[in-house]
Simulated scan of single mutants.
Amino acid sequence: MANIRNLDPSASPLDYYGSELRRLREEAKLSQDQLGGILFCTGSLVGQVETAKKLPTRQFSERLDAALMTGGLFTRLIGLVLKSQLPNWFQPYAEMEAKATYISTYQAQLVYGLLQTPAYARAVLGVENPDRLEEMVAARMERQRILERENPPVLCVILDEAVLYREIGGAEVMGSQLAHLLSFRDHPWIQVQVLPYAAGQHSAMMGSFTLLRFDDDPDVFYAPVYGGGHMTANPQVIRERFVSYARLQATALSREDSAALIARAMEERYGHQPEPEVA
């Protein structure tokens, strides 16, 4: 039997998505099973999305737009739906990150979210969010779409060497994650550096942080804290953190030496052979 649970479209982006799906499906005089056949999925899945019990994917949304000739409605909505799956405290940062022209980050423990593979993200997020794991992984992958747009932000990432050796998700996951990092070694807008153990004490001993720069808005400093995050546009804090970041970049290995260290960790620690560089 078709699921006819009523939704409040104003309750959340997911509820609005589901209510619009039901409205347009019924206008097209299609049953859930009929629409599912067109979308190459089950009618049950259509019903679960309509009742906000299942998170739609971007592929589902694109097929839905084509099937119901919506002019791209669901493809536009899916970004809002996926962003709404991020923790409430993190959403303001994600919105700022998506608007930034320059992103400069130091990460002491983990690969920065914009450069994580799905498997690595799943291992990280599964520690404290097993009940909402797929939704949160999908939301993290959605964040990464800013790197694919026509004018992506400049992204500078400094990883502590410990990040390379902290085995997240097992050897296979880590090998693939490090290979993903190496894929950016010649990217025009993304720079990955490693801060080696040999650096000793450094200007980011207090932990991970990110600096966001914008074309028309004040710079923002963000630092994660347990169960939340601290964000500020205080000019003095920004000034101090930019100096700290400049010192970190000077202390970290060069882009080329960082890639060599990542490749070595990949091979020696996780048994993965790096892909040869294209001449």
Rank of each mutant, 00 (worst) to 15 (best):
M1W: 04
A2S: 14
L14T: 00
Y16E: 14
G18K: 08
R23D: 07
A28H: 15
K29I: 01
S31A: 04
Q32H: 06
D33G: 06
G36V: 05
G37P: 07
L39V: 04
S44T: 14
V49W: 07
E50T: 11
E50V: 07
T51F: 03
A52L: 01
F60D: 11
S61M: 01
R63H: 12
D65W: 11
A67V: 04
A67L: 04
G72V: 08
G79F: 10
N88T: 13
N88H: 11
Q91E: 03
Y93K: 10
A94L: 00
M96N: 11
A98D: 03
S104D: 13
Q107V: 00
V111W: 08
L114S: 00
A119K: 13
A119R: 12
G126Y: 02
G126L: 05
G126C: 02
V127W: 12
V127R: 15
E128M: 13
N129K: 13
P130A: 06
L133A: 05
M136Y: 06
A138C: 09
E142A: 05
R143D: 00
I146A: 05
I146P: 00
E150V: 07
N151D: 09
N151R: 15
L159D: 11
I168S: 00
E172Y: 08
V173E: 00
S176W: 09
S183D: 09
R185G: 02
D186K: 15
P188A: 11
I190D: 02
L195P: 02
L195N: 03
A198R: 13
Q201T: 10
H202P: 08
A204D: 13
D215L: 12
D216S: 14
V220L: 11
P224A: 14
Y226A: 13
Y226G: 09
G227H: 14
G228P: 03
G229N: 01
M231S: 10
N234Q: 11
N234A: 04
Q236L: 05
S244Y: 04
R247D: 06
E256S: 09
A260M: 14
L261R: 15
R264C: 02
E267W: 12
P274H: 12
E275P: 06
V278M: 14
